[in-house]
């Protein structure tokens, strides 16, 4: 998809809006996301989590002029990822003026059984409104 970064394209990430109106990103299984034989690479899963958090926050902000910079990313790996599609969704815990706290989680078979989750804290840099021409 255009508008996605080269790294997201390398992972072949596919954004979608499901029938429940929720924005999700799918990472199909392919060779470039393979880790140890039989499993997805943890780094590819982390890439999916991060991009989903980023895109979900971008949609919530609705302002292209706000720069979103990840400050800390903590990833928990809970289950091995199998050779199949991985679905990811993010939840904005707090959207402040300068910081946003976002949690993303990814699953394969069941949403209730996530394979990984990430807590990402973004620094928000908003354009200065008081600059006069």
């Amino acid at each position: 998809m255009s508008g996605f970064s080269p790294y997201a394209n390398l992972l072949k990430l596919e954004p979608r809006i499901d029938e429940d109106g929720v924005f999700r990103i799918v990472m199909p299984y392919h060779e470039a996301v393979m880790g140890r034989p039989g499993f997805l690479h943890g780094g590819a899963i982390a890439g999916l989590l991060e991009l989903t958090a980023f895109e979900t926050l971008k949609r919530a902000l609705g302002d292209e002029n706000v720069a979103m910079k990840p400050v800390t990313v903590t990833t928990d790996f809970m289950r091995g990822g199998a050779h199949r599609d991985t679905i990811c969704e993010a939840y904005i815990e707090r959207l402040g003026r300068r910081m946003a706290n976002v949690e993303a989680f990814a699953w394969q078979k069941e949403r209730q059984a996530p394979i990984a989750a990430a807590q990402i804290n973004f620094l928000l840099e908003r354009p200065h409104p008081h600059v006069s021409a």
Partner: peptide
């Protein structure tokens, strides 16, 4: 490499690629 870029406007390497490097 260019395909590892996460923020194309500023040519910044994606943190996802960095996490892969670090995990390994």
């Amino acid at each position: 490499r260019p395909e590892l870029v996460g923020v194309p406007e500023e040519n910044i390497i994606s943190s996802g690629a960095m996490i892969s490097l670090v995990d390994t």
